[in-house]
Design a binder for these strands. Structure first.
Lengths: 91, 91, 91, 91
DNA sequence: GCTTGGGGCGTTCGAC
DNA sequence: GTCGAACGCCCCAAGC
């Protein structure tokens, strides 16, 4: 039983149950990947339209990134507040 | 034109319109990014479950990649087939 | 010539020049890794002292992270300004 | 004690001292982090150069890791040797 | 043992 | 179409 985790105590060949689970997992992943690809396509489209209207995509991406940072920073600040509170004795 | 230099020689209206377009674009992008994040979360979840059942995620990812390649190959072949067909008179 | 980039047109055995270069590269990397380890040790020491004085290291780390974010955000903002400028015609 | 709740029942002086200590600690950490970033940049540079000369960075990293292991093994052996020596009377 | 941060890797996007 | 750089994702290791 040379390689990989042992998914079946009896044999190296994957058992029927594991095979079914594997198929289900693969299908779920591929379905999600498809959805992801659609989103990616939409994004590309939006950026393409924007470019066609004269917007600089690089600037757009920077704005998005900056706004994302703002959001992350606000959330981290809240987390820090919580930390202070707990560090001060759990009150 | 209350303050600052006018960066548009024609009219503030154009700038206003551009501002509105920009807001719309940013919103569309951020909405799509949120959807994308949800999908990413779901994917993470599926891989997590699979791992919990003893599957090797690295292998799973490899399988997905291989199947994706296969699919691309098949589609390429089909496209080539269509091309030949149309070259032969659309039949 | 089964694997890897061809570093020598004549032979699979790495030539003398390449061997020398490799040694130099490895030495430079290992020297830098040593320096890095020293820094890491110093950091550990500082956090240790701080902890000994009653500071919560987790909070400290969070503060450091937040300040780092602030700095990154400021720098990105400046970069965005530059981008706007160049996007507006290179002026 | 101008505004807000007093989080220290003893004295504001302690808070002032702690504030100074905190600043010092933060500064020391940030200074070390900067040094660390410089080293990281240098490492990146070296790997970049190596790549430019046709070396496979992944292989290089593996070599570094292996040599690091070897070094650890040798040191472990030396330590064991010292232990034996001292057990034999310090000679 | 769990969780969080850092490093490495693959992918994607923009430039030429 | 190729190239290099930037981004996000994953894994691992250190801290608690």
């Amino acid at each position: 039983m040379p390689n990989g985790k042992d998914l079946d105590a009896e044999s190296d060949v994957i058992n029927e149950a594991a095979k079914g689970r594997l198929q289900t997992i693969i299908e779920r992943i591929e379905r999600l990947e498809e959805d992801k690809a659609v989103i990616a396509g939409d994004l590309k489209e939006v950026y393409g339209e924007a470019k066609g209207e004269g917007f600089d995509t690089k600037v757009l991406r920077k704005i998005i990134a900056l706004r994302k940072q703002d959001k992350a920073k606000r959330e981290e600040f809240d987390a820090l507040l919580d930390l202070y509170m707990s560090a001060l004795g759990g009150l």
